[in-house]
Design a protein around this nucleic acid. Structure first.
Lengths: 216, 216
DNA sequence: GTGCACAATGTACACCGTACAAAGAAGGAG
DNA sequence: CTCCTTCTTTGTACGGTGTACATTGTGCAC
């Protein structure tokens, strides 16, 4: 170690990103914004991270851990462990819609991603799935959680909305669907809540049902 | 109609976007790029479209139609109609990774989105699902297709890669997984192909299985 | 033929990620 | 202790993005 002391480290940068997201959950954090919050010039961040995509990668890793992947291998029944982690991760993302695009800007290859994968494999194996099916099921769960969160994040209103505002948007959507084609109209009330946690959990449960339904 | 003739219309703009995507499938089309291709100043587009998000919306509509939603209500068995449309849409997206983020920049509310929804409802109803479950299943299918496409689009190599290059990336990934934790290592060959069409179709099939498995 | 409504432009702004050279701090070698 | 090397941080800059605003000029209605 020759040069001057570093004034930052990657975890401080991640913290700054999370603070930015706490203040404006729907805004995608930017390199310049993070640097400003750390009291530093934008290009200083390049000492710690090769580019923007890499920054997003470490934030993704942090969020994967925030959802508690350790509980995937713990004591609860395997099925609850899977849905539990899925819904916790989904909740973390919905609370910070601005971060969702980060999950789609590069492959997830960090240690926490590996831990999540192994945890899901553990649970599904415990559920009786053959190894290859467990791998496919694990990946499909991730697809569902991220897809569901991304679509929900794209929909108004954002996480700062009041209860009344949420209800208003929901009712407007239901009315629009009710004016649509017959089957759409008949299910307008259910479909209007497409991005609710209940629907997301329903989807994961049907997926799991389909996986264990094909057991010997 | 008072003023001068319009030199464009929305469909010409969409065509320009599609041409841009044909030339560079992995690059997200930009307002300025579209304008340049049409031989027009960037702000001219604001005559036809209120902002960038709206432009992305009409492109999304075009792609939903490109995948052939009409076939959702046609003669094939209901289950094949669902997986067929899902895989066609997925293929259209994977051929143009640059367009994938468009699906997550706002709610899908156009006529083709409605047609896709109604078509999926028709199929699932035909499959025996109760209306509300059909609505949930339809939405979950969309979540899966878009999530799967988005994750696949985020992974190298892009759609222009040679067969050999694809295999090299796949093998590198398999090797990395094989060095991971036990269950991950045991399923490395399967997991390395996480973004393959086969895995995506497997996921949809398990989802459908789970939906019809709970029938009376 | 004249006036008015509208499309397209010119120009501008704020923001983004990032490259590159210069400045400055701190440890190792003499 | 001094110098030199190394590494962090900065200053400055470039090309890109979406979009606002005033201006120009076209073509129909009167």
């Amino acid at each position: 170690m020759k040069g001057p002391k570093r004034s930052l480290d990657v975890s401080k940068i991640v913290d700054a990103v999370m603070e930015l997201l706490d203040e404006e959950p729907s805004a995608a954090p930017t390199l310049r914004g993070v640097a400003a919050r750390l009291g530093v010039r934008p290009n200083t961040l390049y000492t710690y991270v090769p580019d923007r995509v890499a920054l997003e990668g470490v934030v993704v890793e942090h969020l994967l851990e925030l959802a508690g992947p350790a509980a995937l291998t713990g004591g609860a029944p395997w099925r609850e462990r899977v849905t539990g982690y899925a819904m916790r991760l989904r909740a973390e993302l919905l609370a910070r819609p601005g971060v969702v695009p980060f999950f789609f800007s590069g492959p997830m290859s960090g240690p926490n991603a590996a831990a999540v994968g192994e945890g899901l494999l553990t649970a599904f194996t415990e559920g009786g799935l053959r190894p290859d099916d467990a791998a496919r099921a694990a990946y499909t769960v991730i697809v569902h959680v991220l897809g569901s969160a991304a679509l929900a994040a794209a929909d108004p209103p954002g996480p700062g909305a009041s209860e009344a505002e949420v209800l208003a948007v929901l009712e407007a959507r239901r009315a629009a669907l009710a004016a649509g084609p017959p089957l759409t109209a008949a299910t307008a009330a259910t479909a209007a809540a497409w991005n609710s946690s209940e629907q997301a959990e329903w989807g994961i449960n049907r997926l799991i049902d389909g996986c264990i339904g094909s057991l010997p």
